[in-house]
Design a protein around this nucleic acid. Structure first.
Length: 283
DNA sequence: GCCCAGGGAATCG
DNA sequence: CGATTCCATGGG
């Protein structure tokens, strides 16, 4: 099974939860690779983000992953699936070994894990991502949360579709999101009204889910695939952004190799990171 | 000033 | 159909 885990162990120590037994995990690779936009690193090496209704702070210490101010029960209920600890990344990387480029990319980006994010936040974030760069995407999302999210200890939550749906285009102006503001509004209205049911996506056929999502203005194949992959657990989706298109044409003759297809989303993450930051395309 | 950025809609031919 | 062009904004 592709969901078989790595036999990780988690235990509570004081107010923190400690996890060990995973094989592939690097915080920068995972939290700053462009799949999620709210994580940031502090001077002491800890990473923090508001996830759902609370702010979470984590760190990697040796071979242990620390979740601060977290109970074991909360880890089991929320963070275990958020950090994708029920997946055997080592076995997937082994499968990728059949292809040389994929093997290199997987080795280069081996610290990436897929984060299971909130579907609505994911939809909104990747609408904002279109024809945009990552630092600016982060800025727009930050302003979205500060302006319309709920104030909590240490930050702001991501505003609900219902809250956004009640706003006007003028009220979204402070985001400075450009032409994307009307897309954010259309997404919020379709979700809040129930016209689009994001909760169903994980159970739905992926192609059907994609066409549902593409009813939203500003959502095309790429954004839809990002929502399915990062927000609905559809591991076989491969969002085709400019980098992946370039990798596919220059290295793979247009499509991912057979060995990558069951985990196309993970291959996509490895290749995206590899293409963008390793310098393979520089020359 | 010019280019581009985790695309997609509108408008061509 | 496929191929261009435009879209707001900000950083290099």
């Amino acid at each position: 099974m592709d969901t078989m885990g790595e036999n990780i162990t988690a235990r509570q120590r004081g107010t923190d939860t400690l996890v060990s037994g995973f094989s592939c995990f690097d915080l920068r690779d995972t939290l700053d690779c462009g799949q999620a936009f709210r994580w940031s690193e502090a001077d002491d090496g800890r990473w923090s983000a508001v996830v759902g209704n609370r702010k979470l702070t984590v760190a990697l210490r040796g071979d242990e992953f620390v979740l601060f101010d977290t109970t074991f029960a909360e880890f089991e209920q929320k963070w275990r699936s958020y950090f994708d600890f029920d997946r055997d990344y080592l076995r997937i990387m082994k499968a990728f070994g059949e292809n040389e480029i994929l093997r290199d990319a997987a080795r280069y980006a081996s610290g990436i894990r897929l984060l299971k994010q909130d579907t609505w936040e994911c939809l909104c974030s990747f609408i904002i991502s279109q024809n945009n760069n990552i630092p600016r995407i982060k800025g727009i999302i930050e302003r979205l949360c500060e302006n319309f999210g709920e104030r909590i200890e240490g930050g702001y939550t991501f505003p609900s579709a219902e809250v956004i749906a009640g706003l006007s285009l003028d009220e979204l102006a402070p985001l400075r999101s450009g032409f994307r503001a009307k897309y954010i509004l259309d997404a919020a209205q379709k979700v809040a009204s129930g016209e689009i049911d994001l909760e169903n996506l994980s159970k739905m056929d992926s192609e059907l889910g994609a066409s549902e999502l593409m009813k939203i203005k500003g959502v095309g194949p790429k954004v839809a695939d990002c929502v399915l992959l990062f927000g609905a657990g559809k591991i076989d989706r491969c969002p085709k952004d400019v980098w992946i298109k370039r990798v596919l044409t220059e290295f793979f003759g247009g499509a991912l190799p057979e060995c990558a297809l069951p985990y196309a989303g993970i291959a996509q993450q490895y290749l995206f990171h590899y293409a963008r930051t390793s310098g393979v395309f520089d020359r």
